[in-house]
Amino acid sequence: MKIDVAFNVNGEEYQLSVEPHRTLLEVLRNELDLTGTKEGCSEGECGACTVLVDGIPVNSCLFLAATANGKQITTIEGLVKNGELHPLQQAFIDQGAVQCGYCTPGMLLTAKALLDIDPAPSDVEIKRAIAGNVCRCTGYVKIIEAIKVAGQQIANGGKA
């Protein structure tokens, strides 16, 4: 039996009727065509599907869409505001933190969740925060650097 849910994705309200076994990842990608959120492992180990639910980073592959009623969801498509990149997005570009790009959306949302709590995290805090986002290309060095740079920019009054 389908379940009616209403939630907000990137500022837009959606009312959907979803089957209980549909994950938020499946609904975002297949029904809302928000394909920026990626599937990498489907069991919460790689972080490619990370989105923010009420500001909290979750593996959308392990989040039942039917339980998202009333939630505020942010996906990668919601990071650009008024045509401007989020400081994290700009820093990822500038610091060379993007290679194949498949981990990038999930990585950015995890990083956003971290910087929303603390724009000046230590290296260890950054590493601990992104440990659940597998990047097979970069060795993480430039990702960590980019998160630091973005945090500084946010702390100095850039947009968050």
Binding site: R29, T35, G36, E77, L85, F92, I93, G96, V98, G101
Partner: peptide, 20 residues
């Protein structure tokens, strides 16, 4: 910077699983 990084940080870059 990589010339395609912008498409990748915005989620616009289309991979095969995004082709519908």
């Amino acid at each position: 910077p990589m010339i395609d990084a912008r498409e990748k940080v915005t989620g616009e870059a289309k991979y095969v699983s995004d082709v519908k």
